[in-house]
Amino acid sequence: MSVVPPLTQALVLAGKDLRLERRTGEAFLVVAPFGAVALFMVPLAVGADTPLLATLGPALFWVVVLLFGVLVTVRGSATDGPAQRAVLSLVGVTPRVRLAGRAFGNTVLLLGFQAVIAPVALVLYAPEPAGWVWLLPMVPLVAVGLGTLGALADLVSEGLAGRAVLGPLLVAPITVPLLLGATGVLDAARYGRPAWPWLVLVVTVDLAAALLAAWCARHLEDQS
């Protein structure tokens, strides 16, 4: 048996996750419409105040991306049952590789999720265009950070009852820096302040999440 590099294994696993998503449509046909409904309901509750909605728009987009994006990361279609976990272990997939594969898959799906949600937010809220260029780096950076933290929470809550609710509770509070960074760049651009510090913040969060994931993966190997 030839030795497969861990990165290749992780990419193979991510490909498997994406294929499963294509078959089940959980992220795009369930979570994304749910997020769109949330964006739709806020104006109904707040009132059809166009300038107010334009101000709220970017913030609500990011809140929906983070809260509903967590649901993408704990989607049931990506769950490995005990039998699958056993096979993966026995073909030499380490927990770190499994976590990396899940994080890669999550990141791609979250990029797609943002691409679906963004036009909805744009149409419903007509936000000011100021600072939109900052979204170009921010969108993938948030996808990476949330994808990694989501993969971690997914492994921590793997096989537990109530995982679909527990996972989001574990992730949401620690994604606050991502939320502040993502909304901060737009605020900074609007008030003519430098936006790059927020970018640095989000990059730091991504790095911290990746390092933590790499450190803790081996502790999550399910052995009594």
């Binding site: 574990l170 509070p173 606050v176 901060g184 605020d187 911290a208 933590l212």
Partner: peptide, 28 residues
């Protein structure tokens, strides 16, 4: 024990970043 220890460490390690970002958010 294992899973909660891992989560405890990960969550706590994120707290300085959380605090820093909120601090920054307030001052801006």
């Amino acid at each position: 024990a294992r899973r909660s220890a891992v989560f405890g460490v990960v969550a706590f390690a994120m707290v300085p970043l959380v605090h820093f970002s909120v601090l920054w958010w307030r001052t801006l």
